[in-house]
Design a binder for these strands. Sequence first.
RNA 1: GUGGCUGUAGCUCAGUCGGUAGAGCCCUCGGUUGUGGUCCGAGUGGUCGCGGGUUCGAGUCCCGUCAGCCACCCCA
Length: 432
Amino acid sequence: MADQIQLPRGTQDVLPADWRLRFRVLDTARRRFEAAGFGRISTPTFEHTELFHRGVGEATDIVGKETYTFTDRGDRSLTLRPEGTAGVSRAFVAGGLHREPLPVKLWYSMAMFRYEKPQAGRLREHEQLGCEVLGSERAAVDAEVIAVQAGIYRDLGLPDLVLHLNSVGSTDARTAYRAALVEYLTPFASELDADSQERLATNPLRILDSKDPRTREIVAGAPLLPAFLTDEDRAHFDRVQTLLAAAGIDAVVDPLLVRGLDYYTRTVWEFTSSALGAQSTVGAGGRYDGLVEQLGGPATPAVGFGTGIERIVLCLEALGQKSRTRPVDAYVGVAPDAGDAAWTRAFRITTQLRERGRAIELDLAGRSAKGQAKQASKLESSLRMLVDDLGARMFLRGDFDGSDLPSDVDAAIGQVDAQLVALATMPRPDAT
RNA sequence: GUGGCUGUAGCUCAGUCGGUAGAGCCCUCGGUUGUGGUCCGAGUGGUCGCGGGUUCGAGUCCCGUCAGCCACCCCA
């Protein structure tokens, strides 16, 4: 055998068994989004590199050191999307959605790419589910987006979730705060950890997030962002909290919460779960009132969130949850010593029952009669057919002889279908 | 990017002091059973992540490398 080709680092195959839980996540999200009036959107997997530089910010880790950037054969610089908001905002303008009744509500589920050191819950290619609402600065939009996100988690039954909430203020407030923070921190510059020293110049707000003990001591005495919020910012944030409370959603206000992307303004939040370990963020979001304009569109306030599907699945698995496959309605097998006529008959029965919407498993493995019976049981089929050259017999669970089906295929199918209807209205007999 | 732990069958793992690889599950077949559960038996399946080194001999010891995991970092 030739050498096996390994998975690229930080990627994964999603096998049928994995898809069962993922489908549940996607179905749940779709239901929640549609109930709230969201339409689905997809954007390209790669964009012009400039989109992320301008939109997300060159000083951010995600764009500064984690992108997959390449030059294509036409000498264009392209980047695999590391997050969803920039692309959706671009599409909002390019697709003329800004001329539709505002706000426009969009949801997506798309792969994201970040060159990071892989760990559980941290992949180089991962899938993010998320939404963006563009065209309204009302606090009700922030609260609605958070409520949809919380609703998805609640429907899925995610354990131990905590919503951390903060307001980073409007652009003016942030500029003023940033200046004050730099002024406070500069005398301590040599005592800060290396990363924070660098950020003093590039992205001082992120220093608030540092876990370095000495940096934290210094940060403890720093001016706090809430003091710099404008009256409008404060009123907006209060309103968001009031609405969340009205929706029965608990939130912990965390004045040190700062998000890693440059475009956030005002409300920012993060859902964490103790089930996840170090990568504890299940999903996070925020308002980004300046982004669309920065990308060349009309001034458009907006809010959104993203949540990692793999991390949700990890939470569900921590609960010991496994999703079951749909039980098959009937199992069709061909008698081991039968010939082509029997296979043709079995194939007709199978395809025609499927036309009626039945889930039918045809024994393509050519199992023994006993093997067929075992397999039918494993698939939770309570009805089984054994087809030979002359006709077919139908067995119910525990049935010894089976009953002969009409040799006419259409009549046989009608009889099987009627039996399935009858079984559906009866309690399923338990295996003994 | 920094530090640490771990890589043996499709899965979960055992493998002693270095002596040419095992179990359970899964899958297929057979037996038992008023026949699809139970139980019993058989079979399929592995260059021990990969590459070097030490040795008469390496799954086992050493070095490198790749990958996963944990913490940092970052974040969903």
